[in-house]
Design a protein around this nucleic acid. Structure first.
Lengths: 332, 332
DNA sequence: GGCACCGATGTTTACGTAAACATCAGCGGA
DNA sequence: TCCGCTGATGTTTACGTAAACATCGGTGCC
């Protein structure tokens, strides 16, 4: 900056004014400064600016298993929304969603230069154990922090109800559920809503089949289910799991949807191109990302904590070829 | 820091020494300072430290369409590798891979606090138009920058050759190719290698079918291909595209692999659970991520540019049920 | 013509940290 | 006993920026 000032024959303060776009600089002076800046390849030092202002123009994001569908799409949306607001995003991927790891990540990040923190799917973390720097604005996505930190989540319950009801409407006597891991909040909500929908309809509630979001366990569970003629409708906690179930059904020679109907959850781009195309509950990940950034920036800018805000993002059931009428039973 | 010093009854310099872990502080003094730090919830201000040192402990990453398979897995690996080296990662997602957008993103990022820059799949950008701050260390992944910036890429050529050869070995007369977008370097390399493999084997080279990495165009192209009995083997530029092709073949009633064999590229987790399970060329994304960070940190730490380093990460052909012997032709 | 005011620009200072240098107490050897 | 050395700690300064304040030349009005 001093070099630029010297070259342009002005004071460093004038350079600062030009670089900040203030208008109380003579056009002629401004031009000289800009020329000097270009010539020296000058650009403002962010560290100094952050030091001066106490803010960084950066949001921290903590995600678990970033490469997973929901995570990467949410992160993409957060990055996008943050950019629109003039913020960049610093990312930390935690190995496990345990509160210890999340706390450690939060600590690492808050020692970094961030103005606020987005926690994506802090599955098992409980509020008591999440130690955050005092005054650090936080939002969480899809978690159990609801009531402790502002939160944004897709309407898991509505989605799971719609999926279950869709299958019942098609004439299936009951619906089996391949759930996500027990320590996941969203998995729990989906399972609960599935159970509630069956109970309200007065149907039998089969045991929950416990998956871990991966296609691999979906496949294994599917192989157990396939020989059972009583299984005619399966609601899977996510699309990957559903893909595994579909594969197991194909291998066992059971036709989809003639013998068994399958529904997924998430709405991954590939869902439409599985075989058969998968009926699924589509989440609006980019809406979630925008809402997260929105809620976070409200706090960052007002310097005020929003404790009990909870934004619910609607979901949509998209019906495709993987679901169909229940097969006629013998003697019916 | 001043508050901590006052509370502990020492100078701020002593606080600094404790916070940096230097050992020339009496244990008793250190204890007092640590107590004061804990009491006040003190943690060092990164901006000031960065200002003092001129380095930020942060790497910038520019990605296009972050939620795509290869991108998110590479980013995850970069984040992981960077963390292992004590760096955090700041992320920018560009809307298009054009050099304009990448340049703008690089400019935005270099105004941010970063020590080095990772560009993932800068598809169309050409070196001439990529204006980077002088002295900013850079690595690129899978791009045409090879020879201008240090680069890391999967061995696209070997992978595409293996895929094509695998199909020829199964007795197929030729192999059709559903390519990625024309402006993508990796797509180009895969198409070139496919063409070379066919030519060397003395086979006909069908027209390239131009996709855009999505399952949607794979499906559309698949619908065009399905009615043609001359099409018995299809090599797709990525797994998503292959999923679309599979769907189109199923809908048209062509059996896989009995009538048509299909090969993908990338090795997404879902590939194994498509129907039928997809033969594909598996890329080692986490290896790529590690190599990128490696190459970048060499430059950051030595302050020296590595101009013509090009790390090639091996790929592996994984054969599954989507490929099989060529169907017997009439009269053979 | 002189004075008050305004816009353009320069000067001083503070942000929080850590290196460099200064100081000071205590200890061992001559 | 005194000197010099060593280790612990304090003081000064610089990093690059921008706010706050100071200055200076010009303009308009009485």
């Amino acid at each position: 900056m001093a070099d630029v000032a010297a070259l342009a024959g002005v004071s460093s303060q004038t350079v600062s004014r030009v670089s900040m776009g203030l208008d109380n600089v003579r056009p002629e002076t401004r031009r000289r400064v800009l020329t000097a800046m270009a010539e020296l390849g000058y650009s403002a030092n962010v560290a100094a600016r952050a030091l001066r202002y106490g803010s960084y123009g950066t949001l921290g994001v903590i995600a678990h298993r970033l490469a997973r569908t929901g995570e990467s799409r949410t992160v993409e949306a957060v990055v996008e929304a943050a950019r629109a607001e003039g913020y960049t995003v610093t990312l930390v991927d935690v190995e496990s969603p345990s509160s210890d790891d999340v706390t450690a990540a939060a600590a690492r990040l808050s020692h970094q230069a961030i103005d606020g923190l987005v926690i994506i799917r802090a599955e098992t973390a409980t509020p008591d154990t999440l130690a955050l720097p005092p005054g650090m604005p936080v939002v969480v996505s899809d978690s159990r922090f609801v009531g402790h930190h502002p939160a944004v989540g897709a309407d898991q319950i509505d989605g799971a109800r719609k999926a279950t009801q869709h299958l019942l409407d098609l004439g299936h006597r009951t619906v089996h559920h391949v759930a996500g891991p027990a320590d996941s909040g969203p998995a729990q909500m989906r399972a609960d809503a599935w159970r509630a929908a069956l109970t309200e309809a007065g149907r039998d509630v089969p045991d929950v089949l416990r998956g871990d979001w991966t296609a691999g366990t979906g496949y294994e569970i599917g192989r157990d289910l396939a020989p059972d003629p009583g299984v005619t409708a399966v609601f899977c906690a996510n699309d990957e799991t559903a893909a595994g179930v579909l594969r197991a059904l194909h291998e066992a020679g059971r036709r989809v949807p003639d013998d068994v109907s399958v529904v997924g959850f998430d709405g991954i781009p590939l869902a439409e191109h599985l075989w058969p195309p998968l009926t699924t509950v589509v989440q609006d990940f980019s809406g979630i990302g925008r809402a997260l950034v929105d809620l976070l920036l409200q706090q960052v800018r007002d310097g005020r904590a929003l404790d009990d805000v909870h934004t619910l993002v609607p979901v949509e059931l998209v019906v495709r070829a993987s679901t169909g009428p229940a097969p006629r039973r013998h003697g019916t």
